[in-house]
């Protein structure tokens, strides 16, 4: 079975799996960014215990393989009485891991701000939360567009973990198994999925570059 036949025969469900991959990527990335902001705010807060919790959190989820985390969610959590749907497990795992990397990106963005601006903000009477909101977050978001684009692409690729659990519709990698268990597509199914991943990544990379040019802070 060639690439073209894979398309004609499984076109519909391929479309669904592409959409499923895109949707999970979007949800995981958005969730990861939000959680990454929370972790980062903890890591720069004036309270030592919060900083420690934030640091430990990031170290933990930055250094654990996604597959291990997924195993914990799928097989270990039920022992604690929490049986979550497979898709929820997957999304939660990816969000946790993405948030750790997002926080690392934010930290480098924050380091670029410089203590002087923070002191200037303090000396006009802005509170810690106001400084975070009006100076730290906007600047670190705007200086980290490129690394965040890379993280978005990594998120896309990480959703391939979805092939390790039954999902309906499957995502792009699970789709390979789906196709090959129903017909003899061989390498073609892989090629189609790879094209979808690569195409998406190229577009995201391009958009990331555009956005970076638009919002980058001139220093």
């Amino acid at each position: 079975m060639g690439v073209a036949e894979v398309f004609t025969e499984f076109g519909d469900i391929y479309l669904q799996s592409v959409l499923s991959t895109w949707l999970m990527t979007a949800v995981c990335f958005a969730g990861g960014l939000l959680l990454g902001i929370v972790a980062t705010v903890m890591r720069v807060s004036p309270l030592k215990p919060l900083r420690v919790v934030g640091d430990v959190y990031v170290q933990l989820f930055r250094n654990i393989p996604t597959v291990s985390l997924l195993v914990i969610f799928v097989y270990a959590l039920p022992y604690l009485g929490a049986t979550l749907p497979y898709r929820t497990c997957l999304i939660a795992c990816v969000i946790l891991i993405v948030s750790a990397f997002a926080s690392e990106n934010f930290m480098s963005g924050i380091n670029a701000i410089g203590v002087g601006q923070i002191e200037a903000a303090r000396s006009i009477g802005l509170s810690f939360t106001q400084i975070i909101r009006h100076v730290v977050i906007p600047q670190s978001l705007r200086t980290t567009v490129l690394p965040m684009t890379n993280l978005l692409i990594a998120t896309l690729l990480t959703t391939a973990m979805g092939s390790q659990v039954p999902l309906k519709p499957p995502e792009l990698t699970g789709m390979v198994n789906y196709v090959n268990s129903r017909s003899v597509a061989g390498i073609s199914a892989f090629v189609v999925s790879a094209i979808c991943y690569a195409g998406t990544s190229v577009v995201l990379g391009f958009l990331g570059n555009l956005l970076d040019k638009k919002v980058r802070i001139i220093r």
Partner: peptide, 10 residues
């Protein structure tokens, strides 16, 4: 007022 101005860059 600081030596290095410290205006908000963004």
């Amino acid at each position: 007022v600081f030596q290095s101005f410290n205006l908000f860059a963004h």
